[in-house]
């Protein structure tokens, strides 16, 4: 030994990795946008330029999951299975708030060997309002108007505080007060795209591609989505909520 003392060398297996990427979700009055980039990294290496981390769960719920990719895919698999069991047992799709509570119990169930995942659930509530639920890795959760998570969350969240929650802004004298969570979709989607292009510019683990899922309430006009090259994901129950996906390229350097 270099220091002249005998001591055992410990080797320990680390069951976790950190695979970069970033996700965010924003709620509107009757829609929700859930977005994530598609780059997957380990250290300074890019493992793939297309690894989706946003998943449609039901016709009214979309889950964005970020952190350790192996835990992410395992967790999404289990959530989807529980949602299918619910559909078989109750002959209806699981409501959003029920999915949120279920995710909490599933995450807390592994309190002492957690899934290393940051989850953001977005969609439409039973009353037809857009909703975003954000979770920590052990299941602490909250309903919010917007949330960013993952590698570039520290870059994006203060930007969303400003643009979605109108933090540090005052309405003009006599103007109506700002209400978070009521922005129209043609304002929200450019904010999402700007957030990801900004994060791509300054964070090495963010880039390659952007997938934005838009969940719209029953009967809502979707003409604004047509100009955005939105692709509809076929619904299990036609005539209810609808899910669209909008794809954009991000810088690959």
């Amino acid at each position: 030994m270099a220091d002249g003392h005998q001591h055992p060398i410990e080797h320990r297996f680390n069951p976790y990795a950190e695979n970069g990427g970033t996700v965010l979700a924003i709620a509107g009055a009757d829609f929700a946008v859930i977005a994530g980039d598609t780059r997957q990294t380990e250290g300074y290496s890019i493992q793939t330029r297309y690894a989706p981390k946003v998943f449609k769960l039901t016709d009214r719920a979309v889950l964005a999951v970020n952190g350790f990719q192996a835990d992410c895919s395992e967790f999404v698999k289990r959530v989807m299975q529980r949602i299918e069991w619910y559909r078989h047992a109750h002959s209806k799709q699981m409501p959003l708030k029920a999915i949120a509570r279920m995710i909490q119990t599933m995450l807390y169930g592994k309190r002492f060997f957690p899934y290393y995942t940051y989850n953001i659930l977005g969609g439409i509530e039973e009353d037809g309002t857009g909703a975003v639920y954000s979770f920590d890795p052990v299941g602490s959760y909250e309903r919010e108007a917007c949330r960013a998570a993952g590698a570039a969350s520290s870059l994006i969240q203060p930007f969303l505080d400003n643009q979605i929650y109108f933090k540090n802004q005052t309405p003009a004298p006599g103007a109506a007060p700002f209400v978070p969570g009521n922005l129209p979709i043609d304002v929200v989607l450019p904010i999402v795209i700007d957030s990801f292009t900004s994060a791509t510019e300054r964070h090495i683990e963010v880039g390659d591609g952007l997938e934005m899922f838009v969940v719209v309430a029953k009967g809502r006009d979707v003409s604004q989505l047509a100009s955005l090259n939105a692709e509809e994901i076929p619904a299990t129950n036609p005539g209810e909520e609808r899910v669209f996906i909008v794809r954009r390229e991000l810088k690959k350097d």
Binding site: S154, L155, F159, S198, A199, R202
Partner: peptide
């Protein structure tokens, strides 16, 4: 890191003094 994220989103070229003040303050 937060400053990078917000500045990258709010800043644009050729801002006049009053607009630059608003951008840097926000």
């Amino acid at each position: 890191d937060k400053l990078f994220g917000v500045a990258e989103g709010l800043w644009e070229p050729d801002l006049e003094p009053e607009d630059l003040f608003e951008t840097i303050s926000q």
